[in-house]
Computed example of a mutant assay.
Amino acid sequence: MNLTAKRKSRWPVSARRGLMENVATAIIAIGFLMLFQPFALALYTYSFITMLAGTAMFIIVSKFPE
């Protein structure tokens, strides 16, 4: 029997990988939409920073436990 599978994780449910990867993907998608919208220059200005933050978050979160 695998003892590590039965052990309870100490990570909170909100900090688990599945949910946080979805949040990071949503941030990347928001940055992409900000980049390709033709209306507000301020959104275009911060689109790269938003996508960069989402990408960094995704890389970090991918190391979290399941």
Rank of each mutant, 00 (worst) to 15 (best):
R7D: 09
G18N: 07
M51D: 00
W11K: 10
R17Q: 05
M57F: 10
V13R: 14
S14M: 07
L33W: 05
F36P: 03
G54H: 03
K6Q: 08
G31I: 02
L19T: 10
I28V: 14
M1H: 14
S47L: 03
R10E: 15
R16C: 00
T25L: 11
L41E: 10
I30P: 07
A26R: 06
S9E: 08
N2H: 11
V61K: 01
L35N: 06
F64S: 05
G54M: 00
F48C: 09
G54N: 04
F48A: 15
A40K: 08
A5I: 15
F58Q: 10
F48K: 11
S47A: 15
A40V: 08
S9R: 04
R16T: 02
M57W: 10
I28F: 01
S47E: 07
T25I: 09
K8F: 12
T4L: 15
R10Y: 15
L41M: 04
S47M: 01
A56L: 14
A15F: 13
K63E: 09
M34G: 01
E66L: 11
V13Q: 14
P38N: 03
T50P: 07
N2P: 15
A26Y: 08
Y46V: 01
L41Q: 07
T50A: 01
I27Q: 02
S9M: 04
M51P: 01
T45W: 05
S14Y: 11
L41F: 06
K6T: 12
I59Y: 12
K63N: 14
T25P: 02
T45H: 06
K8W: 09
W11C: 11
N2W: 09
E66Q: 09
P38H: 00
P12S: 06
F39A: 05
F48D: 10
T25G: 04
A5W: 10
R10G: 15
L43A: 05
I30W: 04
F64C: 00
A26M: 12
G18W: 06
Q37D: 03
L19R: 03
P38K: 06
A15Q: 13
I30A: 08
A15N: 13
V23C: 01
A5E: 15
F58C: 02
A29F: 05
E66A: 12
N22Q: 11
V13T: 12
K6R: 07
I27V: 13
S47Y: 04
G31M: 02
R17F: 00
S47P: 00
T55D: 07
G31R: 06
I59Q: 12
P65K: 03
F36W: 12
F36K: 09
V23S: 07
V13N: 12
T55C: 06
W11T: 15
T25D: 02
P12C: 02
T25W: 08
A56M: 07
G31N: 02
A5G: 05
Y46P: 00
V13Y: 09
K8S: 11
